[in-house]
Design a protein around this nucleic acid. Structure first.
Lengths: 248, 248
DNA sequence: TACAATTGTGTACCAATTACACCTTCGTTT
DNA sequence: AAACGAAGGTGTAATTGGTACACAATTGTA
């Protein structure tokens, strides 16, 4: 944790250590208790929430910068992280610039590269940044007011995720090591915001060949115990690069 | 056309009028005589070709910058133009920086936003920029040596285009007003680099409902005259936003 | 007028998706 | 301990979509 003075010095140097005009914003998706969550921070100054973000060091690849930023807010590394869009409207940080005008670094236009991440909820240790008092998961059904254009960024990420679902396997990054078929289905239903047929979902997802059926079942519920599954990493990776299906 | 001196003055001011560290590169696809083409420029100094590119003015939205750059090289406007990836490796312009080291503006790291465009070949009037002697279409089967990471940028754009083909109608921007079914099929085959069944292609593309069959046929070939089609703009736009098909 | 080449159209077959039903198993209830 | 409710496991018929073909029609040319 940095002191106020160290922070001031950091931002005073920011124009020298970071690339000017470029920022990164991350939409971090997690899944917990049947709900899709997004990691957000609450601004110190106002009743507005924003997405984890940061800047690119002078000699740092942008993918590495995104990873670094993610790690700073979550403590985790080596996660599913993809750029999905660049937000380059000159007015997108107008309000921001006013609020932080005492900070010279923020007094410039930023073009933000949007990344979205899929992470295992339980691995994340949310950590606030220098401008926030709270860093926590927000339920997609109970989203707060967003700062700047972060609602637009979030919405674009969600749309991208839904589209990706059609030709990329997802779940490995969002589910625990072992999970049941109904739990995986709930993930898909939550992302798509749509009910799926239990039997058809199972057949289709199994046909992809990315799951291993385990011997054990999950006892405890007041009903028939479902089988446990885990992802077959080899096939999963293959499906990631190949794409699940073609069109033409 | 600017004189050498005007150019020098322009680049001397570049750090003030353009956002530093940010560039835009465009992969412009055209289709002519059954061949897919990409617009490229040949460097004055070396035997290397590069993609149309440029920079973002201080208060300019990036989409507008991409459009401006495209118009400067082609003369056309209001075309299909989509960002597809950001290239942010710190070494990507290393060679570039050396070659242009007398130009202060180029002596910095650039993160490049990649756009791809689909344009009607005949509308384009290729115009060289300040660093090129030639601006012209290059056949995808006969590509030159690329400068910097432009081969990677081009390849990523082509992969994106192929993927988009699965859930977006394309063709309106690449085909003339009226065209025959075999001509449209050739476009798809060229993009995908794959033969398609004539009859199945026709059934499938017609099922999308984005084509209007015209009364006339195209005479002239030494064979049965094919019907002419045009795109139904209303349905085409709808398909663009809706996506041609879903997965889940 | 016959021919070669190309287009228009149709159909049988297989694969994938959809819409369902029935049985099994778990903890709970009585 | 037997019955029950609720959820999971598995199967199948009907429909849709995709693939692989064949044949007739039309064009300019030989």
């Amino acid at each position: 944790m940095l002191t106020k003075q160290e922070l001031d010095e950091h931002w005073a140097q920011a124009r020298e250590i970071y690339l000017n005009h470029i920022s990164i914003d991350c939409v971090v998706f997690g899944f917990h208790e049947g709900q899709l969550k997004v990691l957000m921070l609450k601004s110190n100054n106002e009743e507005a929430w924003y997405l984890p973000g940061g800047f690119v060091l002078n000699e740092e690849p942008i993918e590495q910068a995104a990873n670094r930023i993610l790690k700073e807010r979550t403590g985790i590394d080596e996660v599913f992280l993809r750029q999905f869009h660049v937000f380059g409207d000159p007015n997108r940080t107008k309000f921001h610039n006013e609020a932080y005008k005492e900070n010279a670094f923020f007094n410039q236009r930023f073009i933000s590269i949007g990344y979205y991440a899929l992470v295992d909820f339980v691995d994340v240790k949310p950590m606030p940044d220098a401008f926030s008092e709270i860093c926590t998961w927000r339920d997609l059904n109970d989203l707060p007011t967003f700062q700047l254009d972060h609602e637009h960024i979030f919405r674009t990420a969600l749309d991208t995720l839904r589209l990706q679902l059609n030709y990329q396997p997802i779940g490995y990054n969002l589910m625990p090591q072992e999970f049941t078929m109904p739990e995986l289905q709930k993930l898909y239903e939550t992302i798509l915001d749509k009910k799926l047929d239990r039997r058809n979902f199972q057949r289709r997802i199994l046909a992809f060949g990315i799951l291993d059926k385990l011997e054990q079942t999950r006892k405890g519920g007041a009903h028939k115990a479902p089988y446990l599954y885990s992802f077959n990493l080899e096939n999963y990776q293959a499906a990631l690069t190949e794409g699940l299906q073609g069109g033409w």
